[in-house]
């Protein structure tokens, strides 16, 4: 069963046609990586799928719920209630964390559980503490985001997203804002989630990581999907000269 199905997504900013008919389907438990040059539309795609941008045309459905349907080349969005339901099944981890600076780590993890999902404070805290243990951050629950390293902040951000029990988790370059020595600890967490069959869509520039973790890799260039294939096919096979060029450029 597909947890995410997107067909022929188009998105323009003014005259700038950023997404030119992107298809993406993700099965339950799959990890899909999206790679491609800067400005190719990776973030825009993710933002359309997480409702931070509205697509101009195309179909998107998540967890069997229709988010938008294409009618005569125009994306027609579902009603507010449905969109909200979809939103609650979706988690997003930002490049620059976007933790709430005025709240402690624990409150960052519990507030939405209580206020949005209506869980009790005790339940929310139990879930939060459990996640913090998994993130090896138990002793930081009373710290404020500004007191944490970038790697720790990103792990808190991942925990904050997981606390809402999403069915699918999106990452937009989760390690790009981190110092090199802190990247490993965040990738380790994502690896762990993959082992637990978390469905994930990850935009990343970490090619070794993408290759190792992904079930499928999408290569996006100038708003077109150049390839959507197994990591072996993308990385080892020379059948995509453009991809090879991109990868060799990265390895320099």
């Amino acid at each position: 069963m597909y947890l995410l199905e997107a067909k022929q997504i188009h998105k323009s900013f003014g005259d700038n046609h950023v997404l030119k008919g992107v298809d993406l389907s993700v099965e339950e438990g799959q990890v899909v990586s999206i790679i491609g040059p800067s400005g190719s539309g990776k973030s825009t795609l993710l933002r359309c799928l997480t409702q931070l941008e509205t697509a101009d045309a195309g179909d998107i459905s998540i967890c069997g719920m229709t988010m938008t349907e294409d009618r005569n080349g125009k994306a027609v969005y579902s009603d507010k209630a449905q969109l909200r339901k979809i939103m609650l099944d979706v988690g997003l981890v930002f490049q620059n964390f976007q933790l709430f600076p005025h709240w402690s780590v624990l409150r960052n993890l519990t507030d939405a559980q209580v206020r949005v999902l209506g869980r009790s404070k005790q339940e929310a805290e139990a879930i939060a503490r459990d996640l913090l243990t998994k993130m090896k951050l138990s002793e930081k629950e009373n710290a404020y985001p500004c007191q944490l390293s970038g790697g720790q902040q990103q792990r808190v951000a991942i925990a904050r997203a997981l606390a809402m029990s999403p069915k699918i988790l999106f990452f937009d370059e989760p390690t790009s804002a981190l110092d090199p020595e802190l990247i490993g600890e965040v990738l380790e967490i994502i690896r762990e989630l993959a082992k637990q069959d978390m469905t994930m869509v990850i935009v990343t520039h970490e090619m070794t990581f993408a290759r190792e973790i992904s079930d499928k890799v999408m290569f996006l260039e100038q708003g077109n999907v150049l390839a959507f294939d197994s990591p072996e096919a993308i990385f080892a096979n020379a059948s995509h000269p453009r991809i090879q060029a991109f990868l060799s450029l990265l390895n320099k």
């Binding site: 997480t50 409702q51 931070l52 909200r84 939103m87 609650l88 979706v90 988690g91 997003l92 930002f94 620059n96 976007q98 933790l99 709430f100 600076p101 005025h102 507030d111 939405a112 206020r115 949005v116 999902l117 904050r160 997203a161 809402m164």
Partner: peptide, 25 residues
Amino acid sequence: QGQYEAGKVLGYTRVQTFFHIVLPQ
């Protein structure tokens, strides 16, 4: 803007995002 977006993705309404996340800051 990312603070509003983080609020939205976590399911907060716009009013909740403004009063609980933005206004205190």
